[in-house]
């Protein structure tokens, strides 16, 4: 069983929801990432999405765009991100690690080289924001034999037929994009999410994590009952950008802990 499956299953078994957090690797500087990963894990994150900085992150809101720009100013490359992941994996064998980014980073490295390096780094899953399943077969062919899940997103605009087709190819977990917009947008609507998730539930056994627009304990509590987990990204990145290096770990651990408590009090 992969770490993704294990973590979601364990939370489910104890009647809890999984906490998925995101940060941009190398933001605001490369030394910040390993302590941040430790802090999020210590605060109760089950899955950490490590954002691969990209020059043109077309689906991101201002926070994550800023995170990418800060990381790129330090010259952070995909192979650096993999090295950070590997360093974390050497000390933490429980927390699931997912790389999240844009296809061009992986294309440039080459699918096979990337898949091997990701496996070596202990990566559990990959989210490619701009890679719909229609174009994903070649990459999936390199990831699947190495037990790396290619995680697909479902959106409020995804039709039921399309969702069914996507779910047939999905593995790890399903990322439900809770609103029409970029990451960190501010108009999440619980009723709308609940209505759209109901039919998806019936189509898949995979855990569903809800993301985009969940920024604090209040929104986490509102969304938690609707899925198997929640994703908090932009709010973490904002903290990383605002605090000096020395203060980041304690702040991130506290943030993860408060989200963990919010999830546990919601069910």
């Amino acid at each position: 069983m992969s770490r993704l499956a294990t973590r979601f299953a364990a939370r489910k078994a104890s009647g809890q929801k999984a906490l998925v957090t995101y940060l941009v690797a190398g933001d605001p500087e490369p030394q910040a990432t390993l302590p941040a990963l430790r802090a999020l894990a210590a605060g109760g994150a089950d899955v950490i999405e490590l954002g691969v900085p990209f020059s043109d992150p077309e689906a991101e809101g201002p926070d994550i765009q800023g995170g990418c720009e800060r990381a790129l100013r330090h010259g952070v490359k995909l192979r650096d991100v993999l090295a950070m992941a590997k360093a974390f994996r050497q000390e933490d064998n429980e927390t699931a690690l997912v790389l999240m980014g844009y296809l061009n980073s992986v294309e440039r490295m080459g699918y096979e080289v990337f898949a091997e390096a990701a496996q070596d780094a202990g990566i559990d899953g990959l989210i490619m924001v701009n890679l719909p399943p229609e174009e994903a077969e070649a990459l999936q062919g390199y990831l699947a034999p190495r037990a790396i899940d290619l995680i697909f997103l479902l959106a409020p605009t995804t039709t039921e037929d399309r969702a069914r087709a996507i779910l047939q190819r999905a593995s790890g977990f399903v990322y439900y994009v809770s609103l029409k917009g970029t990451t960190g947008a501010g108009h999440i609507d619980a009723e709308d999410v609940a209505a759209r998730l109901a039919p998806l539930r019936a189509m898949t056994e995979l855990p569903i994590a809800i993301g985009f627009g969940i920024r604090d304990a209040v929104t986490a509590r509102a969304m938690a009952p609707l899925g198997d987990g929640i994703v908090v990204g932009s709010a973490v990145v904002r903290q990383m950008g605002a605090l000096p290096l020395a203060e980041q770990p304690a702040a991130l651990e506290g943030m993860a802990r408060s989200l963990r408590e919010a999830l546990d009090s919601s069910c």
Binding site: A59, P132, E134, P156, R162, V177, K180
Partner: peptide
């Protein structure tokens, strides 16, 4: 049918835009 010109073209966007 998928918008390819040989290996080029295609449709590489966030899921939210696929339906549009």
């Amino acid at each position: 049918a998928q918008g390819h010109f040989g290996q080029f073209g295609g449709r590489f966007v966030a899921e939210t835009l696929m339906h549009a």
